[in-house]
Simulated assay, not measured.
Amino acid sequence: MNTSICTGIHNRVERAGLLRLLEERDSDGTPQYNRLKKSSQSPAWSHFKQLITHLDWGDGLGDTRV
């Protein structure tokens, strides 16, 4: 019983987070969901730093191991 309750809560939290990505906008007006689809750039040190920042942002959305 506890497992099903926890699973239901987890699913609602994940769904709410995904919906928030569609509702919240970046400064240029595009949904934050577009940030998830962003491709990496050519291999350069500055691009690597940007990729780390992007990964940190993605990890902040929730448990990405699932």
Score class of each variant (00 low, 15 high):
Q50H: 13
Q41S: 14
S40W: 07
Q32K: 15
I52S: 12
D26M: 03
T53S: 14
L51Y: 01
S39R: 03
I52N: 13
S39G: 02
Y33N: 00
F48W: 12
Q32I: 04
A44P: 00
S40I: 05
H47R: 15
L51P: 01
T30E: 12
K49A: 08
S40C: 11
S42A: 12
K38S: 03
L55A: 14
R25I: 01
S39D: 09
S39I: 04
L55P: 02
S46M: 04
P43K: 03
D28Y: 01
A44I: 08
R35L: 10
L51F: 04
Y33R: 10
Y33K: 01
P31Y: 04
A44C: 11
K49V: 11
S40K: 07
K49C: 06
T30A: 14
K38D: 06
I52R: 15
I52E: 13
L36I: 13
P43C: 01
A44M: 07
D26V: 03
L36M: 07
N34G: 01
S27R: 05
R35C: 06
D28F: 03
K49R: 08
N34C: 03
I52Y: 04
L36T: 12
Q41I: 11
K37P: 00
S39C: 09
I52V: 14
P31D: 09
A44G: 06
H47G: 15
Q32N: 06
D28R: 06
P43D: 07
W45I: 05
G29M: 03
Y33I: 02
D28H: 00
A44K: 11
L51Q: 05
